[in-house]
């Protein structure tokens, strides 16, 4: 079955069995291996992607249901050297250890912050309830999201003042690049 959809803003077309898991279409067919497989049955959230802006488990979504729709994977949040504030905060605050859960956690957190720029810890916990992590004990994930919310609100304010945009963003990117390549 021919399926055309948008992945991270780019139009993609593939020929796949309709029940092929979106997870396999992304990883095996499109080569987007950022999205991870954990439990394969909807429990762990490692495979979380946005479908038309809403988080879903790519291990349970048949790709046939994505016809004409828009998908965002972790690759769509930012790339090495151009990480988003959210991604940077996970590095800075130890929100990622083995990294298996991280792409899914980032997607759920991104969705939360788009809707709620200033979430309290309960809101963060509830938004991440469908994402299991065996390494961090969650506290550092929550701190990372909290820090990202602060950064994003600061960024949003920067945009309000045209003089600050280039400087503020550029400065943070540079400092971050240094941390990323030790």
């Amino acid at each position: 079955m021919k399926i055309s959809f948008k992945v991270n803003g780019a139009a993609r077309e593939l020929d796949a069995p309709p029940l092929q898991r979106l997870l396999d279409a992304l990883r095996l067919v499109l080569g987007l291996t950022g999205t991870k497989e954990g439990c394969a049955e909807g429990e762990c959230g490692a495979c979380t992607v946005l479908l038309d802006g809403e988080p879903v488990n790519a291990c349970l979504v048949p790709v046939g249901q994505c016809q004409g729709r828009e998908i965002t994977t972790v690759e769509g949040l930012g790339a090495a050297g151009h990480l988003s504030p959210l991604q940077r905060c996970f590095i800075d605050h130890g929100g990622a250890q083995c990294g298996i859960c991280t792409p899914g956690v980032l997607i759920s957190a991104e969705h939360l912050l788009r809707r709620n720029p200033d979430p309290d810890d309960d809101a963060i916990r509830e938004a991440l309830a469908g994402n299991l992590c065996r390494c961090t004990g969650y506290q550092r994930i929550i701190e990372s999201v909290r820090a990202a919310a602060v950064l994003r609100r600061a960024d949003a304010r920067d945009v309000g003042d045209p003089r600050d945009v280039g400087d503020a963003r550029g400065a943070r990117d540079v400092s971050h690049d240094r941390q990323e390549a030790p």
Partner: peptide, 9 residues
Amino acid sequence: GASAQLRNM
């Protein structure tokens, strides 16, 4: 019930 991801589908 379930999680945000599941409730969306």
